[in-house]
Amino acid sequence: MGSTQESGTEGGVLTESLVVFLIISVVCVAGGLGVVFSRNVIHATFLLLVSLMGVAGIFLLLLAEFLALVQVLIYGGAITIVVLFVIMLTKSDEFESLVDNSQKPLAFLISIGLFVVMTVAAIAADNGNTVRASLKFSDLGHSLFTDWAIPFEVASLVLLVALIGAIVISKQGEEE
């Protein structure tokens, strides 16, 4: 994976990476829409996985290979499977009748509004910069363990606390 990569849209010409970007974005957004509109919660989980793998592809386009692999490992290998586990341990037939609440139109308006605002802001602030800088894997590791050493330790503490907390919470209801 090279150093700095140059690409851009000169006068509306589609470059290779833009085509790839568009394909992956369609996958991401379609998966995301599937998550919030699907009537079957298992399908929603698999669609979330599709969407998140698309996000891993986006990370690759941004030359962040390490993050892309972390995304695949954490979301594909851990989070989706744990969610599936829990869905199958709770009553899954309940979900058929349990889809949307009465805030639906309002929620729709709010999200459309937020999307429009963010898009307008992004386009207004666009500086047309098309140079993406890649980061060497070793540099990332170096800065993670020097500049970010304390946050890193705090993050591992957070994981430990969450681990213990999850065990305690799920053990609580067991005796009933």
């Binding site: 957004v29 995301g32 829409l33 919030v36 996000v55 999200s111 937020l114 963010m118």
Partner: peptide, 12 residues
């Protein structure tokens, strides 16, 4: 824009 779209979908 992609990020905004995903965020709005999630918010919905």
């Amino acid at each position: 824009i992609l990020s905004a779209a995903l965020f709005s979908i999630g918010l919905y």
